[in-house]
């Protein structure tokens, strides 16, 4: 049990990730699928950032002392996961924008964004 408590961050992140995954694969609405994908993405980012946390550490920015020198002898959290996740957030927004514009084009072409209705239409078209 204490094993699970010490890993509370991972357990919470994985539950969050699974809620996002469930939204993606259980919903037929394409807009909701994209929102589920966003939940999943935030969960992954949270996982990386929580790995970078050092107990008693501070944000990885050097304080400056009176002489104008950087104070480097305190504990910092790991800056590397933060850098990688900054890139991931921005790329995530770009892919969300692309996905949503695909949804808008599908709405224009089919008149609906419900996946099963779209598949029905494709199916009927193929058998005419």
């Amino acid at each position: 049990m204490s094993e699970v408590l010490g890993h509370w961050n991972q357990v919470a992140v994985i539950v969050l990730m699974m809620i996002g995954l469930y939204t993606v694969i259980s919903s037929d609405n394409l807009v909701k699928k994209v929102i589920g994908l966003n939940l999943f993405q935030v969960a992954v980012i949270m996982f990386y950032v929580s790995m970078g946390k050092v107990a008693g550490g501070t944000a990885p920015i050097f304080p400056v002392d009176e002489a104008g020198n950087y104070v480097t002898d305190i504990a910092f959290s790991n800056p590397l996961p933060h850098v990688l996740m900054l890139t991931a957030i921005v790329v995530g927004v770009a892919t969300t924008a692309l996905g949503l514009s695909l949804v808008i084009r599908i709405q224009e072409a089919y008149g609906t964004v419900e996946e099963d209705e779209i598949l029905d239409m494709d199916h009927r078209e193929a058998h005419v």
Partner: peptide, 29 residues
């Protein structure tokens, strides 16, 4: 979790811009 840079990117981009994108899509669908 000490990731201040990630936090303000997420607040600006996730809470701000992405919400606008979703609302713009919902106006059409």
């Amino acid at each position: 979790m000490d990731a201040v840079d990630v936090a303000f990117t997420e607040a600006a981009v996730g809470a701000g811009f992405t919400t606008v994108l979703f609302l713009g899509t919902l106006a059409v669908t």
